[in-house]
Design a protein around this nucleic acid. Structure first.
Lengths: 339, 339
DNA sequence: ATGAAAGCGCTAACAC
DNA sequence: GTGTTAGCGCTTTCAT
């Protein structure tokens, strides 16, 4: 095995405890002893065994993050933000992906708890009923990310999804569109909230809410493009098709646009389309996509900061819900090409 | 704290050791006792404390994966594959991102070793000199992913990058292009190999290798689009500009195409462009992008399988280098629109 | 088939 | 300031 505290202690003729104290910056150590220990630590390139430290202290200095799917750049960026945020507090991130499967998510929660993470950040893919709460019967604090869970009054960091829906829809309305559709998801809070924002915007602008203009599909996260394409083709079958569409995410929007173009319908002249998420490539698509930016990285950093503050036992003046403001990014798919 | 083996043992009036044996599927336990233990384990929803187990046994049943940047979907998919592969062997993945910074990568290696991972998978961003080898003086086995390191005869799973360069360039040649450029990266093996493949293809087809047609830039992974754009504009300044370009990756290709279109140059009629990586959105770009698919997920699964086989002490008949075959995906940016 | 003893590398009291 | 004594929850030997 690697070098242990005991080795250093013996080398220096001090006790193991003294070494331990130096390594944890305890003050009750002589200045000289401290120097010698640190010196030797560097010489031997000593690294404390975190398993042992964790077992003995009950703290692992690691934080678990579970996301529904790493391949979504939103979550990848979220993870990046969390990782960066934790690094500042010299905590480590242990990252797990649930592959959009609630059961896998439960398992990952159990695993991470068994590994002794000090806190858990979860962008959950639980579908409502959830056996979620009991899993967290443990004393480990946790924070929900991105998606809220019904009936669970937990700490939360995410987008203001109602705001996102409102901003997107407002944008379409201000462009003069009157017959605005929504292609959205099911169940998860992000879907529900964006739909609500859409509704709010319509109402605030005295436009009627027509349920035939709302197409809701499940699994919109995974198969966005196909779903968007299909949903749009349904909308085109309406007696009076929409002149604008607010899509749940960018992939759905890509699918919708594809469907429109295939049908020789111009974007945005005939139908304006806006997505949500601001994928890196959105700008370079066949029709550069208008969208809502959610600052995922910033969300991650905020979540990390919140977690660290909870762990430091700092009296929380922090709010339980941190909502990041959505930002409109207007591109060709709504405002047309600016020549 | 949570429920421990001791609790179960006391409940059942057996010894802690017996419980331990049952949980690790040891055979020297009475069938009846085993049943009772398992029963109680389920009732209490017992989960072994992995820190303790790891400390006592020297194995953590976890494997570390370090990638240069999670936001690259290539690495996200790689991670997904690894995760899936490990799950089969009931190992857990601990994922870390080095943010393309060699120093951070070194730290992550140290951290993961300190956490007791049983093996390390590294898609390294070391820039050559590396203090890499010594870090791995530990007995922990490791596998390099995606990028090879000079002078390091390690296990490796990755793309056949020479093949990728050859396939891409061959494709352009067979399209009748004679003056083929390459926009590539620096230092890392993937860049070097793809360039070599490009060269090989030229030679094999009796085309001259012209160094003015090769533009090499650093940080091509992070700022692909801008780099591609800029590199392409340099190529356009040549006395005789290229009629085709093989780009290091899809983002570089996106940038190159953008530059071409901005200059009213048609793709692919005037200049054909091919990338590498097959990003999910490549198909939906302004000009659907021809590219080389690298099956990142499959690579991840293979890496996981290799790691597991190494840990199981299975006599390795496995090769030290596993190269995944690159696949050509021809789209509009080279073959034009098929009406 | 079962269990007692020792110990993994560290931290947390509490002495001195 | 420094060291001693007990564990943390588990696995490992080795008796029985």
């Amino acid at each position: 095995m690697a070098v242990r505290m005991k080795d250093i202690a013996e080398d220096l003729g001090v006790s193991l405890v003294t070494v331990s104290k130096v390594l944890r910056n305890k003050t009750d150590v002589g200045e000289n002893t401290r120097k010698r220990v640190l010196q030797r630590v560097r010489e031997l390139n000593y690294q404390p065994n975190m398993l042992a430290r964790g077992l003995a202290s009950g703290k692992s200095y690691s934080i678990g993050l579970i996301v529904p799917d790493l391949v979504h750049t939103f979550f990848a960026e979220l993870a990046k933000g969390v990782s960066a945020g934790l690094r500042k507090g010299s905590y480590q991130l242990i990252l797990a992906s649930a592959e959009e499967e609630p059961e896998l998510e439960r398992q990952e929660i159990v695993h991470l708890l068994a590994r002794g993470v000090d806190a858990l950040l979860i962008a959950s893919c639980q579908n409502g009923k959830s056996g979620f709460k009991q899993l967290l019967g443990s004393k480990t604090p946790y924070i929900l990310l991105d998606r809220q869970l019904p009936k669970l009054d937990a700490f939360f960091v995410g987008t203001d999804d109602i705001g996102a829906g409102r901003v997107a829809t407002d944008h379409l309305i201000h462009l003069g569109r009157k017959h605005i559709a929504h292609i959205g998801g099911e169940q998860v809070s992000t879907s529900v909230d964006r739909l609500n924002g859409y509704r709010e915007a319509l109402t605030a602008n005295n436009l009627p809410f027509r349920k035939e203009l709302v197409v809701v599909r499940s699994r919109v996260e995974e198969a966005g493009i196909q779903i968007g394409e299909h949903a749009m083709s349904d909308l085109l079958k309406l007696r009076r098709p929409p002149d604008a569409v607010f899509c749940y995410n960018d992939l759905t929007a890509v699918g919708a646009i594809r469907c429109l173009l295939n049908n020789k319908i111009r974007v945005p002249e005939d139908v304006a389309v806006i997505g949500c998420g601001n994928l890196r490539l959105s700008m370079y698509l066949e029709v550069p996509l208008s969208t809502i930016d959610q600052s995922p990285q910033q969300q991650g950093e905020q979540a990390a900061a919140l977690a660290l503050s909870m762990l430091s036992g700092e009296p929380r003046r922090r709010a339980k819900h941190l909502l990041v403001e959505p930002k409109l990014i207007a591109r060709d798919s709504t405002v047309g090409r600016i020549e």
